[in-house]
C-alpha cells in the first residue's frame, strides 16, 4: 500500500471533516533523507472536531500516536497542518 494511503487509513480514526495527505518527496529528491524510491516527505492537512480541546503539542502527539512508531520511522519528514 502506498504510504499516502497508509497515512490516510490511520488518520481515519479522527473522523476528519477534511483530510489531505500529500507526497512531497519529489521536491526533496537528492536531499539527505530522501529515498531513491520516493515516499520520504509528506504533508498532512487535517481538520477534525476531535482536535478542538487539544493544545498544539497534544494535536501533534495524537497524530504521531495514530501513525505509530513503525510508520513514522519509515517517513523522513512529516509536516502537519491541524485544525479543528
Amino acid at each position: 500500500m502506498p504510504v499516502v494511503d497508509e497515512i490516510r487509513a490511520r488518520l481515519a480514526q479522527f473522523q476528519p471533516d477534511r483530510l489531505e495527505v500529500i507526497d512531497e518527496s519529489a521536491r526533496h529528491a537528492g536531499h539527505a533523507g530522501a529515498r531513491p524510491e520516493g515516499e520520504s516527505h509528506f504533508r498532512v492537512r487535517i481538520a477534525a472536531a476531535a482536535f478542538a480541546p487539544m493544545s498544539r503539542l497534544a494535536r501533534h502527539r495524537a497524530i504521531h500516536a495514530a501513525l505509530g512508531p513503525e510508520l513514522l520511522a519509515r517517513i523522513h519528514a512529516l509536516a502537519l497542518e491541524i485544525e479543528d
Partner: peptide, 25 residues
C-alpha cells in the same frame, strides 16, 4: 521529549515543539 522529529525547541526547560508549531506560533 516523546517527539519523533528534529528540530525541537526548548524554552526555559519546557518543550515548545518542532518546525510546524514554531512556525505557527
Amino acid at each position: 521529549s516523546d517527539w519523533p522529529t528534529i528540530p525541537q525547541l526548548y524554552v526555559k526547560g519546557e518543550f515548545v515543539g518542532g518546525c510546524d508549531i514554531v512556525t505557527e506560533m
